[in-house]
């Protein structure tokens, strides 16, 4: 595994930063880490990059325990609330970070101009960082994160300061990284962006992971399918009800709640076995936003029922 955590926990006194987070990442994917503000997303990343010491639990990054300097050589990080030395030029800043990453002179001279070009700052390379807009600083931060040619890149809200065009470029950049076999750990609350590009996601609320898995599975699980049927008999309806309880009619369509994707072929086989005519079958996906809001509201209701805040 490229990244693996076991019950990783960070407590700030009696307050929960992150509680018993266990997850595993394989190489070559974009992993979305979602949650509302204050959910513990940044706390989790900060533990993985060595800024915070975990209270309990274990973690390995690139197969090495947290803090291992060999592993840190191949990890990139774009913090959320960062600022760079305003009195350095963009080129000098990258050179400084390249030195910190232990890059050789030849690696520096090859990578710095290429990355400045990639993030669209080649013509501003000699300007002071203090004169950069927030969006330009965000791009520069991305270049810094990519300097060591990392196998694992943590991006904490990489698009937050960017305009729509900039966001699209960053999305494309992440997709390119994945195509090159890199793994991107994306911390974001921009659900549309995450839904567009992430292969796997974990949703975190109040420090706890409330759901994780493949994006496709999360969005089709417990979802509905819409059938356009002719010649439906009562026997067929009874069989379909056994497979998917509580079917309902919506105009000319029959709506079924399927517990998982594997059920869909069985529904089709049942329809065919009864000799009914199936004209269309359309999965009614739940959007990531709906899933996200649903999980958070469910958590709030549970907390209200329990009458207190969850503790680690």
């Amino acid at each position: 595994m490229l990244l693996e955590t076991q019950r990783l926990t960070k407590m700030y006194g009696s307050a929960v930063g992150c509680a018993e987070v266990s997850l595993a990442l394989e190489p070559g994917q974009i992993f979305g880490f979602l949650g509302p503000n204050g959910a513990g997303k940044s706390t989790f990343i900060k533990m993985l990059v060595g800024l915070l010491k975990p209270t309990s639990g274990t973690a390995t990054v690139l197969g090495q325990p947290l803090g291992n300097s060999q592993a840190r050589r191949k990890v990139g990080f774009l913090p959320e609330n960062f600022r760079y030395q305003a009195w350095l030029s963009g080129q000098e800043l990258l050179s400084f970070h390249a030195d910190l990453s232990g890059l050789s002179r030849s690696e520096k001279s090859e990578r710095i101009p290429r990355l400045l070009e990639e993030v669209g700052l080649a013509d501003k390379a000699r300007a002071r960082v203090g004169s950069y807009s927030k969006g330009m600083q965000q791009r520069l931060g991305l270049a810094c994160a990519l300097l060591p040619d990392p196998d694992l890149i943590f991006l904490d809200e990489p698009s937050s300061a960017l305009d729509p065009l900039g966001r699209r470029e960053v999305r494309q950049l992440m997709l390119n990284l994945r195509d090159r076999g890199k793994t991107v750990f994306l911390n974001s609350h921009l659900l549309g962006e995450v839904e567009m590009i992430c292969d796997r996601v974990a949703i975190v609320n109040r420090g706890h992971i409330v759901r994780q898995g493949r994006m496709a599975d999360l969005l089709t699980r417990e979802t509905e399918i819409e059938l356009s049927l002719e010649k439906m008999s009562d026997e067929l309806l009874a069989d379909l009800t056994r497979l998917c309880p509580s079917p309902r009619r919506q105009g000319p369509h029959l709506i079924l709640s399927v517990p998982n994707r594997a059920m869909i072929p069985r529904v089709v086989q049942t329809i065919a076995a009864h000799g009914a005519e199936l004209y269309s079958l359309r999965p009614l996906h739940v959007s990531l936003e709906e899933l996200f809001v649903d999980l958070l509201e469910k958590g709030d209701r549970q907390d209200a029922g329990e009458g207190g805040e969850r503790k680690c």
């Binding site: 060595g50 800024l51 600022r83 760079y84 970070h97 910190l100 990453s101 931060g141």
Partner: peptide, 14 residues
């Protein structure tokens, strides 16, 4: 306070 340290410490330095 400014956040510049956030980008420095994750590098492979002590």
């Amino acid at each position: 306070e400014s956040g510049t340290i956030l980008a420095i410490l994750p590098h492979p330095i002590r």
